Amino acid sequence: MQNEDTDPNNLLGRPNGYLSRASAELPGGNGEADRYTVDRGLAIEVFTTAAEADRRSEYIQGLQEAAPILGTEYHYRADQGRVLVRVTGKVKPSAAKKIEQAVADL
């Protein structure tokens, strides 16, 4: 779980930011990446509304589409769309499918 000091995006509790954020390492993620970043595996961001989570997801996907050097991510949604689960694109598709199913089962 991140706090104001460990949030890598500086969005926690800020206007247009998320309410809470947690991250975890996954096999296939970059264990050498900065701590708490999605590059290490996954990040879970909780927003007030689904629309806010939509904007965040679209923003990230747009950046990655425009600049492929930034990598890719899988995005999954939970809690009526308010929760954005971000998984690094370096994770194997079979592992990402398991995460997608776990999120769908929430």
Rank of each mutant, 00 (worst) to 15 (best):
R77K: 13
L70M: 13
A50W: 01
R40H: 07
E65S: 12
A53Y: 01
A96W: 05
G41M: 01
K90P: 07
L42N: 11
E45I: 06
G81D: 13
S57W: 10
G89P: 06
P68D: 03
A43M: 13
I69L: 14
S57Q: 10
A78D: 00
R56N: 09
K90R: 11
E52L: 13
L63I: 02
A53W: 02
R56Q: 12
Y59K: 12
A96T: 05
L84M: 06
Y59D: 15
P93C: 03
V87T: 08
Y76N: 04
G71S: 09
V85G: 01
Q64H: 08
T48W: 05
E58N: 11
E52N: 13
E58M: 01
K92W: 02
P93F: 00
E45N: 14
R56S: 04
I60L: 11
R86A: 15
H75S: 10
K90Y: 10
I69S: 15
E58S: 12
R77G: 14
A95K: 11
E58L: 08
V46T: 06
R56I: 01
V46Q: 07
T72L: 04
G62W: 02
E65P: 00
D79S: 05
A78R: 02
E73N: 15
R56K: 09
G71D: 04
D39C: 06
V87W: 09
G89F: 08
S57F: 07
T88P: 08
K92D: 09
I69A: 15
L42F: 15
I44D: 01
D54H: 02
Y76W: 06
R40S: 04
S57P: 00
L42D: 09
I60A: 10
L84F: 10
A95E: 12
S57I: 08
A95R: 11
Y76H: 04
R55Y: 14
I44K: 00
K97V: 00
R77F: 15
Y59Q: 12
L84A: 11
I60C: 05
A66I: 06
K90H: 12
R40M: 06
V38N: 07
E52I: 08
A43E: 14
P68N: 02
G89K: 06
R86Q: 11
P68E: 00
T72P: 04
F47E: 07
L84I: 05
R77V: 08
P93G: 03
Q64K: 12
V83A: 08
K92Q: 11
I69Q: 15
D54A: 02
T88E: 03
T72E: 15
R77C: 08
R82C: 04
G62T: 08
L42H: 14
L70E: 04
I60K: 03
R86W: 01
T49I: 04
